[in-house]
Design a protein around this nucleic acid. Structure first.
Lengths: 229, 229
DNA sequence: CAACTAAACGGACCTCGGTCCGGATCGTAT
DNA sequence: ATACGATCCGGACCGAGGTCCGTTTAGTTG
């Protein structure tokens, strides 16, 4: 539960990142900068947002994700139920917000961190590293990742998903200038789906090492390159 | 809506296929034979099952999948709400039951139908044909397929999913005796996910033809074979 | 045909996600 | 300091999925 609490800690201490309001689209992972034009939250709203995230993290630690009821969170944060929904849109939005910190971290790593994840390494190596990173990140927060999954209709259009996939597409284009990288990115992303990881590791007892070599194998096949070593 | 109604028609006229009771696992697509030991439904139960499926199909035709409320279905079938849940376990189970007919049809086709889908053709061709068949079947019943999706925790373990995946694994093993076909099957299956098809065709406006060539391309890459023509 | 049992039935009931709107509050302009 | 409008708050309310359990009924046995 440490990662969650840490994320929340950061969320409450750093200047609150405004959550979009109108058609509440969850944490836009792509914009690293809050942007100057972003409508900043009112003081009370920001305070309540932090308290809600903290309360949610506490509930997860105590009763698991299933214990994160919108009413329970509201009560634990001593806030009205409506407030939770206004801030996060829906339950999924709240859960995604809890994952926001590690998501930004990951994105920062592959956008500007050190190789092989970040720029500098050849794209094929970056792609391998990317998969491994996502794999382990998901495995660490499996329960939360599973619960935060949006319904299938919105999943693929969701900013958080798109952010990751866009990166895969970029790398693929460098490796396969002539391939339909937009399409090819999907089976690659699917291999990293938290639901699949859950199934393979928890329900079928596969060790993470096998998933890892499975990823490099898949990457090699899809890109038509030689597997490493 | 024709396919749904047809499926229901068949379901009501043919001897009712017993739905497992205890830990309600949805239509086991793999068993073509009801089996002799199967606990047959009581007469009234079978009658109500048929009425419920018919009512559900009618509701879909009239108000779309969103109109399929468990209470609405119960009322339309002039049956108690508890009966719906006893028979189908949950909403997903009911929706899956509506897809049961086309699912069995598909399975029969690739298990015992004519080539290239059925046995007789080389495994690579069968795999290509399989993907195309699943692709178009999903596209036809997209709305229902989407709504019938189980939650991510159960999805990969679900019999209906396993039935299809097992077939892919079998074909893959014939093509790649040395590959980790169990793992490789997953990204292939993922490409055929109704949610993805919905996203690509409805939200991003891709024509089915592109998805189709995308499939053959993916198969060629994963199997390390030459794309056809 | 009567008795009996396992199965099925039905609908009240519970929980939880999500909506709504009158009232309180913050930030600002004067 | 005061007034004002945009924003936010809270909790009553609603709908739908899912559970429970007392009652009914189908099928079987003697």
């Amino acid at each position: 539960m440490f990662p969650v609490l840490y994320a929340v800690f950061m969320s409450s201490v750093l200047p609150p990142f405004p959550q979009p309001q109108e058609p509440v689209d969850p944490p836009r992972l792509l914009e690293v900068e809050p942007g100057p034009g972003e409508p900043c939250l009112r003081a009370d709203a920001a305070r309540n947002r932090a308290r809600l995230l903290e309360a949610a993290a506490r509930l997860i630690a105590e009763h698991g994700v299933a214990g994160v009821t919108m009413e329970a969170v509201a009560a634990a944060a001593q806030v009205g139920k409506g407030t939770v929904f206004r801030r996060f849109g829906d339950r999924t939005g709240l859960l995604m917000a809890l994952l926001d910190h590690s998501g930004r971290q990951l994105q920062a790593d592959f956008l500007g961190g050190p190789p092989p994840l970040g720029p500098g390494a050849p794209p094929l190596e970056r792609l391998r590293a990317f998969g491994v990173a996502v794999l382990y990140r998901s495995a660490e927060q499996l329960e939360l990742q599973l619960a935060a999954q949006p319904e299938p209709t919105r999943r693929y259009a969701h900013p958080a998903y798109q952010a990751l996939r866009t990166h895969v597409v970029m790398l693929l284009r460098q490796i396969l200038p002539d391939g339909d990288c937009d399409l090819l990115s999907h089976p690659l992303m699917a291999y990293l789906d938290p639901g699949l990881i859950h199934h393979l590791t928890r329900q079928r007892g596969m060790p993470m090492e096998r998933l890892e070599t499975g990823w490099t194998d898949l990457v090699a096949r899809v890109t038509g390159t030689e597997p490493p070593r």
